[in-house]
Design a protein around this nucleic acid. Structure first.
Lengths: 157, 157
DNA sequence: TTACAAAGTTACAACGATTCCAATCATACT
DNA sequence: AGTATGATTGGAATCGTTGTAACTTTGTAA
């Protein structure tokens, strides 16, 4: 893939969640709010860039120098199990994470810049035909984001 | 995951595609029809079990003993690029493959038996909101297949 | 305050899917 | 035949993730 997403997460949404809210979320999910776990959840709540475990780890390392990769993985697995986060496997080889406490939405992977966007597009479990018992439905789209599409068509003009 | 899919692919659809048809598909996609590539595409056309690269490799090995894993990967990448096959990343850590020459459909991963089912549920690229240029949309569902759901509810009866 | 159990964290080894690479082989065109 | 091009091969290397055993922290009760 020549796409690059190295610039990191641009989408720092202004709504920074307070530590109190973070702790409340974890208590509700029956998860002990340790420092490390709070750091992970806080990162996920503050930014909307669907980071991978590795990205979470390296982004947290400066402020939590003794942090271990294993702890990040343990934490994310625990939170996924307790439905605090969703796992997103839109790219081969990496699992990305998204706060579950958001309105349901689809995801769009841009093949230009490699970024992943939230889009308002969902499918209801009720739409699944047949006698399936459906826990969840994910919608993954691929193509060009508005920016890259504009840049691409500008080039060929 | 305690789910098992070891039994392999049950869904041998009767419609075995002729070698001639296989070759035609490849010619159309501008792919040289080598023995190895034909074997891969033939397997994909004959069975509807969404095999992984490893599964394709080990299933082909008896009849093509000198086959290399790398060739399987090369072939699948090439065919994906030429839109002869689709990559399905419904499970973490493995890419599965599906013949592209089928009516579009969604996929359902059963957490009971681990099998992947085709379901009649798709989303049109036109439904993606905003200025995105959408190449493809995948719908991935998780839950229990009819068999496992029945077995589960029978247990608790 | 000490003691102890339970839970959480850590570093590192191990694993599996995939990719990389250099060598070999097959094919088609002079 | 000779050569260029593309396909195939096997093995090493990479990368995300998981497993493991030791260590640290926390909570609780003497």
């Amino acid at each position: 893939m020549e796409a690059n997403n190295k610039e990191g997460c641009r989408d720092k949404s202004g709504n920074s969640t307070t530590s109190a809210a973070i702790v409340a979320m974890m208590r509700e999910a029956q998860i002990q709010p340790s420092m490390q776990r709070m750091a992970v959840l806080e990162l996920l709540a503050a930014e909307r860039c669907h980071p991978s475990a590795e990205e979470i780890y390296s982004r947290l390392l400066p402020s939590v120098p003794t942090l271990s990769r294993t702890t990040v993985y343990n934490t994310l697995h625990l939170m996924a199990e307790k439905n605090l986060v969703h796992e997103i496997e839109i790219e081969p080889g990496v699992t990305r994470y998204d706060l579950a406490a958001r309105p349901p939405h689809g995801h769009f992977l841009c093949r230009g810049c490699g970024r992943i966007f939230d889009i308002e597009l969902t499918v209801s479990p009720d739409d699944v035909p047949g006698e399936f018992v459906t826990d969840s439905v994910d919608v993954f789209c691929r193509g060009l984001c508005p920016e890259c599409a504009a840049a691409g068509s500008a080039e060929t003009d």
